[in-house]
Design a binder for these strands. Structure first.
Length: 611
DNA sequence: CTAGGGTTAG
């Protein structure tokens, strides 16, 4: 949940990790110079009619997919050529529609080329054309070019409209420049440069949600209303989705109620977001209720909704139910897509049933659906779980070779797999490869590195890496601290662990129950029972309730340090809370009972366990 | 003719 946040995926600094902000090789500076007929170079890909037998299923499917895409591009370009020869020339609107068609096919660089050719032919363009091309630049991750076009708009005396600015804001946000976007937006409002509507507000609301500031997004929702811009179903749905992802589903349901009070009809997206949130909390009864509500409002679940449900069941191990849901959606006229099938494959992979996942892959292929980068990630994860890291690496290479960009998740999974199989050297090399490829590292990568180093007895390295990351502006989350605390205690570095723990609050983080448990376990191991006990008091003070694990750790700690009275007290406490001894604690207790020591506390314990 | 919300990893 935290991982999806753009700003926690931030910045190990460039200096430390030599992490390129963006590959400078992929500029579009050259695109305006590209002559249109040279676009036929796109056809130099292997002839799909000559697919060699040794290609994998993944590879064959990719070739087919690309063939379809390129044919359409070719059509569009032929139309453009025809338009250029027409006399009189078609209107700006016709040309802009052609650009829109290219955008729809995601051929952004081709669209930019067409635009530059239009300019060189002195075809009149308008603000709409400019906005379209700005959108293309943003998709090509060249926000700098987008702003250069904005300058051109001013220079030619056009006036940017709300669409132009919305596109630019989205471009900034997609490049993790949310603060810049927010600043631009504020200035636009301050100087009345734009009449804000629900869409431009939603762009900022969405940015706030994606950077973990759902409450600010909520405030902006109230603000737009105050400014006389009525929030619509999209504004509400954006926030409802974010709340659901923050596990605040009840707040999200509250907003749903507010919508109906105001006569704003929720749609399938609104409901899907809520269902997703409820799935994460396993609130199946509420899900059933929402599905009934949808039915009552004549909103039928879409492909997306079914995918969410398939995913939830599959992750919960209920692959049979997930299979049934897919049958059901087909019966109801919704065609499962690559996401739906991938969710099912994920379910099988998580159960270690890779053969069954492969069967699903074949089913999907037979329906003409190609695996995507996420499908690969799922199999990579499956193989890593089975410690078949080499196969996973092979898959990664295969997808790269075939033009699919592996996600950071795929890289992370393999990096973790290498550490877990104690292939330290290779992990190091692989990490370097990630940096070279310009993979956008995130907080998970950081956790894997630190955990991997600690696990392999290199706590010192982990700590110095952590400090360097921090000094470069990396903001750790509580899981990162937990990894380090665990590692420090494992290496007997009690003072450093204590120090890190005390700094957690200063970093603006809240210790989790795992943090407290790790501290208690660490102190127990070192025989510092009173410090362990202080942590227990501290966690209660901070409204972090001890779990079964907390008691087990404390009880084991007491007995290992021959503090039988204390151990018995904690057993009473644990029982009073309805918790049970785990296998490890139980075995210690039974071992103790075997001893003939006539310790009074042990006798009492004996009575408790053998009435 | 142009812009907005819902699916993935430790």
């Amino acid at each position: 949940m935290i991982m999806r946040r753009a700003f926690t995926t931030c910045f190990f600094s460039n200096t430390l990790l030599r992490f390129p902000i963006h590959a400078t090789t992929n500029t579009i500076t050259t695109i305006p110079l590209l002559r249109l007929h040279s676009l036929s170079q796109y056809h130099t890909c292997p002839n799909p009619n000559h697919i060699p037998n040794h290609l994998s299923e993944f590879e064959q499917l990719l070739l087919e997919k690309s063939r379809v895409g390129f044919d359409k591009l070719d059509d569009a370009l032929r139309v453009f050529d025809k338009m250029l020869r027409k006399k009189p020339l078609p209107s700006v609107i016709d040309f802009t529609q052609l650009l829109a068609a290219l955008v729809k096919m995601k051929h952004y660089s081709a669209a930019v080329s067409v635009f530059s050719k239009m300019c060189s032919f002195n075809i009149a363009v308008d603000i709409v054309t400019y906005s379209t091309v700005i959108n293309c630049c943003c998709h090509l991750k060249r926000v700098d070019y987008a702003f250069a076009l904005l300058a051109a708009i001013f220079k030619r005396g056009f006036v940017p409209n709300v669409v132009t600015y919305t596109t630019l804001l989205r471009g900034l946000i997609s490049q993790d420049k949310f603060l810049e976007a927010e600043l631009l937006f504020k200035n636009l409002l301050k100087h009345n440069q734009v009449e804000p509507n629900a869409v431009i507000f939603n762009t900022i609301i969405n940015g706030q949600c994606k950077t973990g500031n759902t409450s600010q997004a909520m405030m902006l929702l109230r603000y737009m209303e105050k400014k006389g811009c009525m929030p619509n179903v999209v504004n509400y749905s954006t926030i409802i989705d974010s709340l659901s992802k923050d596990r605040l589903v009840d707040d999200a349901l509250g907003l749903l109620g507010e919508m109906s009070d105001r006569g704003i009809q929720p749609n399938v997206v609104t409901y899907s977001s809520l269902i997703q949130g409820l799935c994460n909390l396993n609130r199946w009864d509420d899900i059933t209720q929402l599905l009934k509500d949808m039915n009552r409002h004549k909103i039928s679940p879409g492909k997306h909704t079914y995918s969410i449900l398939v995913d939830a069941h599959a992750r919960d191990g209920k692959v049979r139910d997930a299979e049934y849901l897919i049958e059901l959606m087909i019966r109801r006229g919704q065609n499962p897509d690559v996401v739906t099938y991938s969710a099912l494959m994920d379910g099988y992979c998580l159960r270690g049933e890779l053969d069954k996942a492969s069967v699903v892959l074949r089913t999907m292929r037979n329906k003409g659906i190609s695996p995507d980068a996420h499908t690969y990630s799922i199999f990579i994860n499956g193989f890593c779980k089975k410690t078949k890291v080499d196969t996973a690496i092979h898959l990664l290479e295969e997808m790269t070779l075939k033009g699919l960009t592996p996600t950071v998740e795929a890289y992370n999974t393999i990096l973790d797999g290498l550490f877990r199989t104690l292939r330290l050297d290779e992990a190091h090399k692989f990490y370097k490869k990630m940096l070279n490829k310009g993979v956008k590292l995130n907080v998970v990568t950081c956790g894997i590195l630190l955990h991997g180093l600690c696990w392999n007895g290199l706590v010192g390295e982990a700590m110095s890496m952590f400090h360097k990351m921090e000094s470069c502006g990396f903001v750790p989350n509580i899981q990162i601290c937990n990894i380090l605390i665990h590692g420090l205690f494992k290496d007997g570095k009690v003072d450093e662990a204590r120090n890190l723990f005390q700094n957690i609050l200063l970093k603006g983080l809240r210790p989790s129950v795992i943090t407290y448990n790790s501290m208690i376990q660490g102190f127990c191991q070192e025989g510092l029972l009173d410090e362990a006990y202080k942590i227990l008091l501290e966690m209660e003070e901070h409204n972090c309730l001890p779990t079964e694990a907390t008691y087990n750790i404390l009880i084991r700690g007491c007995f290992k340090n021959k503090m039988y009275d204390g151990g018995c007290l904690f057993i009473d406490d644990m029982v009073a809370h309805g918790f049970k001894a785990d296998a490890s604690t139980a075995s210690i207790v039974f071992d103790l009972l075997q001893l003939k020591e006539q310790d009074p506390a042990l006798l009492a314990l004996q009575k408790k366990f053998m009435p």
